[in-house]
Design a protein around this nucleic acid. Structure first.
Lengths: 360, 360
DNA sequence: CTGTTAGCGCGTTCAT
DNA sequence: ATGAACGCGCTAACAG
């Protein structure tokens, strides 16, 4: 009862089915592929044997023979971010429509991990991959590195190479949301941004500035905080912007961050904040709630319950599922379209729209 | 320049490397596997050839030879639910620690789709799979159907078969949260539940009842709504429970659901609601906000910003990432432990804890 | 230390 | 309408 050969799982092979049905493996193969040129009688015998043995086609062997695995890879930076889980759902939807399975991995924004995962996907002969690049070099994603295996970048554009990509209108969304704040009379608008090295961080900052310029305003650099990465850092930054008398340098070591309660904002404090993503917006919300100051918030990325927080909130929204679907469509086109080098890369930009939540 | 044989992607094979290095493929294989018994000189020549050719090992061929793909499958019902995306992240974390890649698919709670996906995974020779079963029959997950391929169920227990599984303490969590409401003086506690046919729907309802019994109370069946599936249905159910004078049957066809505004709750309306999952809790929150009635809420599943909604909220929380990690560990144990039938199935139950949010 | 042999399970080509 | 032979790229088992 021990395993005979390595890799023998005991599962019946096409050979077993063929023997039982009294035909050759070729005939079994034809039946399974629904090839018409098989007599109804043998066809039935084969299917009966398949059923009796519980035979299942070995996709690995098939892939080896055919030179393609029928899988695509998806690499995201952070699946815990609802944005990326929606993206994944969109990718999966289109992929499965085309009979492709999805290998999904998470990088945690680590370039080295991304490199390893890309290697693994390539080694597994995926038909192509969709990558949300962690940032830094894209050298491991070039056609040269991947032998023209199709690659689509999502959320962030290729740098130093050509590739299909799907982006959101980061600039326009940030500009529109900021303009909305300006239209509501705000003149001192703070900026809570993710790292400028990340594409969204740069573009959304550009949008923030553009809205100011269009209104003949100059943003006050002292209200700008960039390089924020999570809820906690954003909350801290927001607190400091909104309550400058809380010393940046720890003057009173007794109660570091705890001097809360309703207070007047400082005279030069911002009257509104623009945040470049959902985590930063949440940090800002916490700060505003804790300090109880009347500040208007605007931010990128919609989120659940934004409408019932009971505070004025301007949100830049877009369709993350659709982004996944578009990325997958670009990829499938590329897969079915011959060598990747044959056509120029396409870039899709998803529209954003501004939503206004909360009390007037 | 056309492709010669089907499946010839033009990628160099081990043979090419061997030729260039003037050795046999076996030696190349040894070098790549870091087999010690290779002289440093040839080793270097081989690596040089690998580098020059941009050779990459073909994982498909390797899998065929070895009889295992180095992948595991994960099938969830709804990746858009943060709970399952965290689960996926936990699974991936442990999987990658063991050098396993993750094939992820979504069923949308459709049994037929689940069946197809399980077939596909089995066909791809995954080392094992973790499944959040959509409900209904589990016949496609039995050892017989899968030839003893390891399976771990997550979130919902096996029915009509034996299998490892990881669950949350649905009963205890619901009981504790309900008890908390009772301890705060609530006597009329409404129940908004997901379908009783789903394991969590049944267990959490049991917990709700158990808390009542433990306090010598009998829940009023008129306050119980089961079979709710999303935010919208939950909100509607909550509205009707909280404002019974809004007719269940449309008496005034003019303004169906729009008679809102602050109002007194009906005398026999519930003073608190227990909701069995995050979507239902959100529906209840919307109803409470819209009707502006003083109702305490309790619900399963923690969510972002729950703490700053400014309403009393009792949440049953648990670690979804950890659930994924545990499931993956069970699976890896099973994979490494020989035939699945050899040891009795294990069941892990994740603890829950009750969090109290909001004013008070 | 290195090479030769012999497949893993399937699909394709060519013959019958 | 059916089958025999061959090979996809890799590696375990044995030489030597």
């Amino acid at each position: 009862m021990a395993r005979q050969r390595p890799g023998d799982s005991g599962a019946p092979t096409m050979r077993d089915v063929a023997d039982r049905a009294g035909v050759s493996t070729m005939t079994v193969s034809r039946v399974l592929k629904e090839d018409a040129r098989v007599s109804e009688a043998t066809r039935r015998r084969v299917l009966a044997a398949v059923d009796a043995l519980g035979y299942r086609l070995n996709a690995t062997a098939r892939s080896l023979r055919l030179g393609g695995s029928g899988m695509i890879g998806l690499i995201v930076t952070n699946l815990a971010n609802p944005f990326y889980s929606r993206l994944a759902l969109g990718v999966q939807e289109v992929a499965s429509q085309h009979g492709l399975s999805m290998l999904l991995s998470n990088t945690g924004e680590e370039l080295e991990r991304e490199r390893g995962l890309v290697e693994d996907l390539a080694s597994r002969q995926v038909a192509g991959m969709i990558v949300v690049p962690a940032g830094g070099s894209h050298s491991h994603l070039t056609p040269a590195a991947l032998r023209d295996m199709p690659v689509v970048l999502a959320s962030r554009p290729p740098s130093g190479m050509a590739a299909d990509c799907v982006l959101v209108d980061d600039f326009g969304g940030a500009r529109d949301a900021t303009a909305e704040l300006i239209a509501r009379g705000h003149r001192r608008i703070g900026f809570l941004g993710n790292p400028p090295a990340i594409h969204t961080g740069a573009e959304r900052y550009r949008g923030y500035r553009a809205a100011h310029e269009a209104a003949g305003l100059e943003p006050d650099d002292r209200l700008v905080r960039r390089g924020l990465t999570d809820v906690a850092t954003a909350e801290r930054a927001a607190r400091r912007l909104l309550a400058p008398e809380s010393p940046e340098s720890p003057a009173s070591p007794g109660s570091p961050e705890s001097r809360e309660g309703a207070r007047e904002p400082a005279p030069d404090a911002p009257t509104a904040l623009f945040c470049t993503n959902n985590r930063l917006t949440q940090g800002a919300i916490r700060a505003v709630r804790a300090l109880d100051v009347p500040v208007a918030l605007a931010g990128f990325d919609d989120f659940d319950l934004a409408d019932i927080l009971g505070m004025p909130l301007t949100i830049v929204s877009y369709d993350a599922d659709e982004m996944g679907r578009q990325a997958a469509r670009l990829l499938v086109d590329r897969i079915n379209g011959g060598p990747a080098a044959s056509r120029p890369p396409r870039r899709t930009v998803l529209p954003t729209h501004v939503i206004r939540y909360g009390p007037e």
